[in-house]
Amino acid sequence: MKMQDDNAIIALIRAGDKEAYRQLVERYQQKVFQTCMGFVHNEADAADLSQDVFIKAYEKLHLFKGASQFSTWLYRMTTNMAINYIRKRKFRSWFQRIDDEKNEMDIKGGEGADAHLLRTEQKKLLRRALERLTTSQHKAFVLSHYQDLSNQELADVMDLSLKAAESLLFRARARMQATLKQMVKSERHEM
């Protein structure tokens, strides 16, 4: 049903009704934004990245063959663009990184010091755990945990068999746990 709807909208766009694309954007913007959050971890960057994804998807829409669902195609594009985005971001100077952290401190200035510390610690844990994942593991984790895709949907987006997708997700979780274990160990040595 949903697939037909998307395809009907795509047919309208292909027939020249550019405004029809707004329906697709509004239908998928929350999911795309959530996925971007799983890679960039801040709202401003996630919004910019989501915007880029939808613009790119429109430009490449003539290449969408309809072999998969539009959402599958869109989510695949989102994860690929997000990975590229964070790779580029890694090349930014460390000054920018410090600015980001300072801005975050200012934005969250209203909350209590303890709550802020807790949030910062949680964020640090999450970032470090995700950083150690391979690209595919990162994608699998985000699609499963941020987007709540089923394992079959995950398999479709990543173009894997169901078993391979399940295995990839398991390895992502295992590696995250190993990273956390390492962090717990080193923090205890510091104490």
Binding site: Y21, R22, V25, E26, Q29, Q30, F33, Q34, M37, G38, H41, E43, A46, A47, S50, Q51, F54, I55, Y58, R119, E121, Q122, K123, L125, L126, A129, H145, Y146, Q147, M176, Q177, L180, M183, V184
Partner: peptide, 25 residues
């Protein structure tokens, strides 16, 4: 720490898409 990570994921994914994203697109 495992629960803290999942809690943070839960918070991040609850952030609503900014208004006017579709207009910007």
């Amino acid at each position: 720490s495992h629960l803290a990570v999942l809690h943070r994921v839960g918070e991040e994914k609850q952030v609503a898409v900014p208004p006017f994203l579709s207009t910007r697109v």
